[in-house]
């Protein structure tokens, strides 16, 4: 009887299942993921919200009049102070679908703009994360695996980019591309396109990914299974794809939420400096900038998008920490800087 029990194959779980179970037990990480997904869902519903509320969040509607409790209220209230010449946008009505958060200086529905703005913030930071990971991984793989002169050139280039202050590099890239866009061969990106901030933010953070990846590839390059593959005559690209890439996947996955958090902050800062998302399009950064002039009269216009950024970034950071602890507990991946 006892022999039979020994012979029974013990059901073992793979490393992914173990990591997933660990992550699922991390309550803070799961709660953060839920919060972040809720924000994503809300932003995805932006077009529906605007249609339901019957507002155009991109057109200036200074003379619009809305109904609150059956009474007509102009979106821009004439100022009662001084000469009475200035206009103050409508404050929050706290009625969903009816200028919930009030109007901005153009008489636009801030709530609708918040959702659309969140959509572009999320799209830009997500796309920039993918861009950075692809370019950074490619550079790290090539530099680490092929070594020699390739490594020297790539590493020095990454060193220089790394030493460059992030915001200044982003500003330099934005200022030359903002007016005319980029035209390189078949690639033609118009100014005002959301791809511009994606590429700029993507480029800026490449060394953050490429340098640690290169380090890992360098040590994998000298591990026995890779040496065995080389001696069997397996071509280099196949070794990279089949042997090395799977071994750095966990690091790459851990990068995603942390990188995305960093990108959201960078995107909002660039948009705040008016070199990110271009008007009339919105992002949380541009809405804060719009709200700056109204800060003392209608503070919510600037406060709410900042709060949305802080909550999203914090959720991503907490989830990222949990993901790292679950997948790759020994790694030192940390992107808190800057």
């Amino acid at each position: 009887m006892s022999n039979q029990a020994v012979a029974m194959p013990r059901k073992t779980r793979g490393p992914w299942a173990v990591a997933f179970a660990k992550l699922a037990r991390d309550r803070a990480a799961m709660a953060s993921l839920a919060v972040f997904l809720l924000i994503v869902l809300a932003c995805l519903s932006a077009p529906l919200y605007a249609k339901w509320a019957g507002v155009d969040p991109f057109a200036s509607t200074l003379d619009a009049v809305i109904q609150i409790d059956g009474a007509d209220v102009p979106v821009m209230e004439q100022s009662t102070e001084g000469l009475g010449l200035g206009y103050t946008p409508l404050g929050p009505t706290w009625r969903l679908g009816n200028y919930f958060l009030g109007a901005d200086s153009q008489g636009r529905d801030v709530m609708a703009r918040m959702l659309y703005g969140g959509l572009s913030s999320l799209l830009i930071s997500g796309a920039a994360t993918i861009f950075t990971l692809i370019i950074g991984t490619a550079a790290g793989l090539i530099a680490g695996y092929f070594g020699g002169i390739t490594d020297t050139v790539l590493s020095r280039l990454l060193d220089v980019l790394w030493a460059f202050p992030i915001y200044l590099l982003a500003i330099s890239l934005s200022i030359v591309t903002i007016a005319q866009g980029i035209r390189i061969g078949p690639i033609d990106i118009e100014s005002g396109s959301l791809w511009l901030p994606v590429i700029i933010i993507g480029i800026v953070y490449v060394p953050y990914v490429a340098r640690p990846i290169r380090g890992q590839v360098l040590s994998l390059r000298h591990s026995e299974f890779v040496l065995a593959a080389i001696n069997l005559g397996v071509p280099g690209w196949r070794i990279l794809w089949r042997d090395i890439l799977p071994n750095i996947t966990t690091t790459l996955i851990v990068f995603v939420p942390l990188m995305m958090a960093l990108n959201m902050l960078t995107e909002s800062a660039l948009s705040f400096l008016s070199i990110g998302v271009q008007p009339p399009a919105a992002s949380w950064g541009t809405i804060i900038q719009d709200g700056q002039a109204l800060l003392y009269t209608r503070p919510l216009v600037a406060l709410v998008p900042g709060l949305a950024i802080a909550v999203s970034v914090m959720a991503l950071n907490v989830f990222g920490d949990g993901l790292r602890d679950a997948l790759d507990p020994r790694s030192k991946v940390r992107l808190g800087r800057d």
């Binding site: 909002s268 998008p305 900042g306």
Partner: peptide, 13 residues
């Protein structure tokens, strides 16, 4: 973590 997650210009405002 909250301090890291807030945009600095927004905190300034």
């Amino acid at each position: 973590l909250l301090g890291i997650s807030m945009p600095v210009y927004w905190l300034g405002e």
